[in-house]
Nucleic acid binder design. Sequence first.
DNA 1: CTGCGGTGGTTGCGTTCGCAACTGTTCTGC
DNA 2: GCAGAACAGTTGCGAACGCAACCACCGCAG
Lengths: 156, 156
Amino acid sequence: MNLPERQIAETGDANRLALEGFLPYRLARAAEIISRQFATLYRERHGLTRPEWRTLATIGQFDRITATEIGAHSSMHKTKVSRAIRALEERKWITRQVDDIDRRIEHIELTREGRTHYRDLVTLARSYEAKLVQTLGETGIGQLEAGIAAIERKHT
Amino acid sequence: MNLPERQIAETGDANRLALEGFLPYRLARAAEIISRQFATLYRERHGLTRPEWRTLATIGQFDRITATEIGAHSSMHKTKVSRAIRALEERKWITRQVDDIDRRIEHIELTREGRTHYRDLVTLARSYEAKLVQTLGETGIGQLEAGIAAIERKHT
DNA sequence: CTGCGGTGGTTGCGTTCGCAACTGTTCTGC
DNA sequence: GCAGAACAGTTGCGAACGCAACCACCGCAG
């Protein structure tokens, strides 16, 4: 019974909302902080944008994959994927080859150079995650992951 | 000792990264899902954009406030705030008055109409948060909040 | 009182975004 | 075997973004 004690406590006034206590806001803010922090790393080191990093990470994870699959796996809109692919292709980090039997489909793979960058990106990601564990603490990370997992569970 | 067991387990290959298991990605995705879901509500109901909603929420929380303060409180860039304020002013939901002694400063308040919308927005937010508690579960929410709190603690 | 650094807020501009429309191709049903 | 639905991927376009430059104003030093 009567659950919103927490929220009321924050402003002391039921007719106001404390933005800093509102979960969607806090979540968005937290994600923004982490995302920006990590983005700085791969931007400075590889000159990648956020969509490009996600695309590269997905291709590297699967070796050979199509654009739509990239979008599905990395939660990105078709157009973002398309543009990221073009950018990576221009850098010669990936190649595409049209499928033999279904010519709508393009299979994307990493070039040798792309693979080099991917490997470096993986260690970068691992070390950032490790640093995160260090600064937030094992329990903090665990709680965060559990909370996120709850969201993932409900929204496919 | 040896902590990254979790990550290795996800791909079964230490040279690859499982995007879907990478915390920054998962966090960004979760935030995106929640943010969009809630945004749909206030967009459909009040025709507000995300910066406008944050701005309105902040003004309503403090009655009388300046643009810089709004930015600081809602983690938004000056220009976003400036444009949101203009939009809200055009709708006649807020008024500004230049400070008497320091004429660089503008004090912003809600109009009666603005206050009406704000109140509705607050109940909308509360009910969305309640729904969130319901779908994610008390423990899920608790864990998520604890995780976010860890981030907030470290990054001011 | 004057010049000059700092601050509140706005604007210009190039970039990114996401929707909708499009091209080219395959699949389906008749 | 042909018309139309469905699908992979691209492109055009208006809206939103964020940076840097800017304007107006304050406050301080000399």
